[in-house]
């Protein structure tokens, strides 16, 4: 790619880095997951609302039924990806000290994976039984 056609600024070309080192990929991830979440969040809200006032047995039955479980797994998976990248964007916007930035990005990764695995495990357990 010639220098004239590149979208990189002069400073980025010289240093090999942009202000945040990366970014376009994250921008696209937030948009793609955001579009998916418009639909999946609606599904989540309908599912959650339909469970209001129901006892544990009925809740387990509904959450474990194939369509609901698949929608919930999609909602959880896409949400985790979206919130991971979103929180990463917040951290790199405000935290400039390398050490604390690294620790916060690490904590962000751990939190997102832990929440994702916990939710996914719960849904699968509700679907497949004990």
């Amino acid at each position: 790619m010639s220098a004239q056609r590149s979208y990189k600024t002069a400073a980025r070309r010289v240093r090999g880095l942009g202000a945040a080192h990366t970014g376009t990929g994250d921008f696209i991830v937030l948009r793609v997951t955001g579009i998916a979440l418009l639909f999946l969040s609606c599904a989540f809200v309908v599912i959650a609302t339909s469970l209001i006032g129901r006892n544990h047995a009925a809740t387990v039955q509904i959450l474990g039924s194939p369509l609901v479980a698949v929608l919930m797994l999609l909602f959880i998976g896409v949400t985790i990806y979206h919130m991971w990248i979103g929180m990463q964007e917040i951290i790199i916007d405000y935290v400039h000290e390398e050490g604390s930035k690294f620790l916060l990005l690490l904590g962000n990764a751990f939190f997102c994976v832990a929440i994702g695995v916990a939710c996914a495990f719960a849904i699968l357990k509700l679907s497949f039984g004990v």
């Binding site: 719960a122 849904i123 509700l126």
Partner: peptide, 17 residues
Amino acid sequence: ALYFGMLLVAWWLLAAA
């Protein structure tokens, strides 16, 4: 806020399970 709110969703699903 929603990021930390997902703790509530995780609690809800784990409690049901």
